[in-house]
């Protein structure tokens, strides 16, 4: 006989609900509407960075964060890889190649595949070099330490930080500011969001991090995910209010 605790039951309901809404939104939004949901501002600014990079002929740097193979305490995720994929696919033929720096082994290996995939899709594999993407250090400080001297070089156009970050990484934002380089910080870690908010960099706040859409790239997925989030938010809010009232009236144990 399978026994399930209340917490596990609620968890299963939430996952089931998310899957159902995802599928429903996907089915009802097969075509892009004329009134799309507006992009997240911080992600939209990545497009400006890409333009700047190709116009100035300088390199764009992508900091991928600590990674997701269990070495960090933040929520592991693959948003950073998606951002990297979009940026790489648009900057293959730039004068200076876009370079990415990972803080974890699995992330560095997947990132290597993503970067190579971008060159392959552009039919320019001869331009691919393995040092375009790789590990810059293990642990939060070492990753930052390995990336900062690269950031201090003269031929950079800007920096995108995306992935699992820590508040300590604000030092990167400070160096970018000293070098007058624009920085976009996209992270789901609240501590890092608070620290980057205090810096001058563009930062994703709260759940916005999970909705990457740069310009017109990734629009359909973004629109679907934003709508799914909207529905989930409404359901969670209503469920909270109803449950609170039921608890108050003694109906819920």
């Amino acid at each position: 006989m399978l026994t399930i605790s209340l917490s596990d039951l609620i968890a299963v309901i939430i996952v089931g609900l998310a899957v159902v809404i995802m599928v429903l939104v996907w089915l009802t939004n097969r075509k892009l509407t004329s009134e799309p949901i507006e992009n997240v501002a911080a992600y939209d600014d990545i497009e400006a960075l890409m333009h700047r990079s190709s116009e100035e002929g300088n390199a764009l740097l992508v900091g991928m964060g600590e990674g997701f193979s269990g070495q960090n305490s933040n929520l592991g995720d693959s948003v950073g890889l998606l951002v990297e994929q979009i940026v790489m696919s648009r900057s293959v033929f730039n004068d200076q190649p876009t370079r990415s720096f990972s803080g974890d082994g699995a992330l560095a290996c997947i990132s290597q595949l993503v970067v190579h995939g971008a060159y392959e899709n552009a039919m320019a594999t001869e331009l691919f070099r393995s040092d375009h993407s790789g590990l810059s250090g293990i642990s939060a400080f070492a990753w930052m330490g390995g990336m900062m001297p690269e950031l201090a070089r003269k031929d950079n156009a800007g920096l995108i930080l995306t992935g699992a970050m820590r508040p300590e990484h604000i030092l990167i934002a400070d160096l970018a500011e000293r070098k007058e380089l624009p920085l976009v910080a996209a992270t789901g870690a609240l501590g890092a969001q608070a620290a980057f908010f205090a810096s001058g960099s563009l930062v994703t706040l709260g759940e916005d991090y999970y909705l990457p859409s740069i310009g017109k790239v990734n629009q359909r997925a973004y629109q679907n995910q934003a709508k799914t989030m909207n529905w989930l938010r409404v359901i969670v809010a209503v469920a909270l209010i109803v449950s609170a009232l039921l608890k108050l009236s003694g109906v819920l144990p």
Partner: peptide, 11 residues
């Protein structure tokens, strides 16, 4: 706080 991030259509 949840509704701060409610995504709205451009129009």
């Amino acid at each position: 706080v949840l509704f701060v991030f409610h995504h709205q259509k451009v129009k």
